[in-house]
Write a protein that binds this DNA or RNA. Structure first.
Lengths: 141, 141
DNA sequence: CTGTGTGCAAACTCTTTGCATAAGT
DNA sequence: ACTTATGCAAAGAGTTTGCACACAG
């Protein structure tokens, strides 16, 4: 459940969707397969659109956006906000740090445990922490 | 130099600009005064635009964008990327954690020292850490 | 069948840009 | 004067939305 080394992809994707009550349409299956098969990924809507097209599936960009939103609401994906005007979707949904390569705008997971949060602040009354986002912006040396 | 408790505002702002070789135009002065006087702030371009208008200065939105970019390049401000399609500008330019209130989209500094980064990962070869961005997303409980 | 998902294109938001005018040194 | 900044409006990028048609259950 934590590893998504999809044996077949299709089977994984189908389960992925049905578990959340998302109707496994052809388009969603195509998208889910890509997301599931690739391991941990960080994709923008457009990147996923390009991939699904390359894979031969006929899915519109609007549907990619719709599906990503649906997947996120279902807890299958997590939005990563790093750059203005662009949302990345992460197939890992737990709190974990990211590398952001400024020179090409790509994202990668930072090694697990490499960033240790030693303490968290007392949050304002009536609030709780939804997530802790850590981004290490990297530039070429 | 680290405290910006602007005694007069105008004087601070003028120094702020001239130190970086930015020509102290009326518009930039108006913007800089707002940024300097308010202490640590987290403003969007539109918010700053609204403020400067309210303050009676006549500055166009495009100029606000231009000025914010110039200020950022000069190291006077720091961009904070938290939400898709919106850039916040922070008058504090050092690494420090932020609270992000999901319910209203506002940002605040988290208490200094409240988030302790115990360790940083070994970054990929040829890279160095430009900044460490930590965002605590808060939702209403 | 019935309702939800899809595709298309237009709308929307935030940001950037080009060019003539205005202002700073 | 000479250079740089400003203002306006239009262009751009990314994302969302409305509506008719298609498909899954």
């Amino acid at each position: 459940m934590e590893k998504t080394c999809a044996s077949s992809g299709k089977g994984e994707a189908a389960r992925w969707l049905s578990e959340c009550g998302l109707r496994p349409t052809r388009q969603r299956m195509a998208l889910a397969s890509i997301l599931v098969e690739g391991g941990n990924r960080h994709l923008t809507a457009e990147a996923l659109y390009a991939e699904v097209q390359a894979a031969g599936a006929d899915v519109s960009l609007a549907t990619v956006y719709n599906a990503l939103k649906a997947f996120t609401e279902a807890g299958l994906l997590r939005e990563v906000h790093i750059e203005a005007g662009r949302v990345y979707y992460d197939t890992r949904v737990d709190d974990h740090p990211h590398f952001y390569y400024e020179h090409d705008g790509s994202i990668a997971d930072a090694p697990v445990g490499s960033v240790k949060i030693a303490s968290l602040p007392d949050v304002p009354e009536g609030c709780e922490i939804a997530s802790v986002d850590v981004v290490l912006r990297l530039r070429k040396r």
